[in-house]
Amino acid sequence: MGRDAILKAIQKNKPSLIPLPEINLDAFEEPIDLLETFKEKVALVGGRIIALDAIKNIDSEIQKLYPNASKIISCIKESNLGTISISEKTNPHELEAVDLAIINGEFGVAENGAVWISEDNFPIRVLPFISNDLVIILNKEKLCSNLHEAYKLISERNRTFGLFISGPSKTADIEQCLVIGAQGAMSLTIILV
């Protein structure tokens, strides 16, 4: 009912075809240090970034950062800090009181400090949002300059659910005062290895 009427109205009212523009990506290219820019932007968006020499030091680093976390979900094999195990079958409501989640990130985007994470990195979709704090482990070689590059990197993925996450959840809805920690994770730490 609505469908046909809408499509008919569009056919009647739309202008004649305007071609899609060719996008010249060279126009956006600039000589930047990917790692330095990424670090700078993560700080800008309220995140914390730590570079480690070796992945085996992850657990002691995380314990230093989050000494009070007791309900921990680790989705990476390199960490032994997990105290709760979850699978695809876990009821998302059971994650209400999770203190800390540790997940892998796929790659970072230098221009905006975002990291692409997807369902492949965490079995329950709500996890990176509902966990009080979030740690993302990222290979420091896996950085791209901007979102145009980023979309090339995810073009062949299995499309289920994924996101660019840039910093901790935040709001400025009360008199424009920036408050870190709105409805999602209160803090985001990116550990570069």
Partner: peptide, 10 residues
């Protein structure tokens, strides 16, 4: 530079 969350639902 980008919103905190840009979620892609497929």
């Amino acid at each position: 530079p980008i919103t905190t969350y840009s979620s892609h639902f497929n």
